[in-house]
Amino acid sequence: MSDPEILEAIRNGRDHAAFVALYTHLPKVAHLVRQNSGSKDDAKDLFQDALVIFHRKVRGEGFTLTSSISTFLFAVCRNLWREELRRRNRTLTNWKLEDQADEPADLTALLAREGEYSVAEKALKTLGEKCLDVLKRFYVLHEPLQAIAKTLGFAGEGAAKTRKYKCLEAARRRYKELLSADRSTIQHA
């Protein structure tokens, strides 16, 4: 699939086809990671994060892509990996300064935002199944509270609302914990 075809697929909700096509860029990223003290699994995880970020960018407001998809994914991975190595107290050895030239100007801001959201994602993952279910139905699938109450067996709309509130609060507490733990390990702006 060509770049425009991939973008088209994502816009039309054909995520599977788009993601499969995007995985052709994985080897280049795997090479970078393995050259810089990472494993094959690290490369896969990193690349999957980049895929999530790319998908969200394409579906996000005012989307523009100034480079090729390959360049974008690679730039995201390089930045995320540098961050990860900093966490592990290592530096990216083969990372060259001139590589930065083709990086989208707003990449730093985008990655900072996504970095916070990924912490939130981690926090959400620690919630119980039912909690996550309620939140996903409400915020991602946009199901009405009444329908959620019916499907998940709550007494009514009010009960579902209270449950949603409690789950969100639990996630928020966990998010705060993770965020402060994260900040104490990375001493940079």
Binding site: D15, F19, T24, Q48, E116, Y117, A120, K125
Partner: peptide
């Protein structure tokens, strides 16, 4: 709250990403 909502959106993409990896 914005972070958590965005985090949920990210989490919702994971199965498709993992499934495509299998296909790849």
């Amino acid at each position: 709250q914005r972070s958590l909502r965005e985090g949920l959106e990210r989490l919702a993409l994971r199965p498709a990403v993992a499934k495509a990896y299998q296909a790849h």
